Simulated assay, not measured.
Amino acid sequence: MEQVILVDERDNAVGTLEKMEAHRKGLLHRAFSIILFNTKGELLLQKRSSTKYHSARLWTNTCCSHPLPDETMADATRRRLKEEMGIDLQPEFAYKFIYRAALDNNLVEHEYDHVYVGTFDGEPVVNKDEVEDWKFMSLGQLREAVKQHPEAYTAWFKLILTHPELNKIAA
């Protein structure tokens, strides 16, 4: 059973808990979101697999997950990016924020989300158990698409797209 790191509002670890239990109880835990841009400035998106336990078949950022207990964030981001998208690179920390969102299947995401960014111009080799589809989109096109069809995107990704730090990164 995969464990997540429970944290306080200052991102101090306060314990661990089985991942599904943390999501059922809506407890604050450490997570990360990775956004990769190509050299044209487009974001690499993934469509979550239909088998995901929440937010299935929704479009989201390049990769997201949780560090394992005793795993550094650098190791976790590199590991999951390779596992989900077949991309072996080390993204750089950009910013972090806390959010809480009610999800499908009576689950709650309450995360201290660490956002990482990087550059990638290739074609991902996706893990079909994790990712159903992928595409690159410009920030302008993406924001318009989210405005037109917000239900097609994950809760955390919509927050990332409106975060002021993203504009600084994409500039």
Rank of each mutant, 00 (worst) to 15 (best):
V108Q: 05
E109H: 03
E109L: 00
E111W: 02
E111R: 07
E111N: 07
Y112V: 13
Y112A: 09
Y112R: 01
Y112G: 03
D113P: 01
D113V: 12
D113M: 15
H114N: 14
H114Q: 09
V115H: 10
V115T: 07
V117F: 03
V117D: 02
G118Y: 11
D121P: 01
D121C: 08
D121G: 14
D121E: 05
D121M: 06
G122Q: 12
E123V: 02
E123K: 11
E123G: 07
E123S: 13
P124T: 11
P124Q: 12
P124V: 10
P124L: 06
V126Y: 01
N127H: 13
K128Y: 09
D129H: 14
D129E: 14
E130H: 13
E130G: 12
E130Q: 10
E130M: 10
E130I: 04
V131R: 05
V131M: 10
E132M: 14
E132S: 15
E132R: 09
D133N: 15
D133R: 10
K135V: 00
F136T: 07
F136M: 06
F136L: 09
M137A: 12
S138Q: 00
S138L: 00
S138K: 04
S138Y: 05
L139H: 02
L139W: 07
L139M: 08
G140M: 12
G140H: 13
Q141K: 03
Q141N: 15
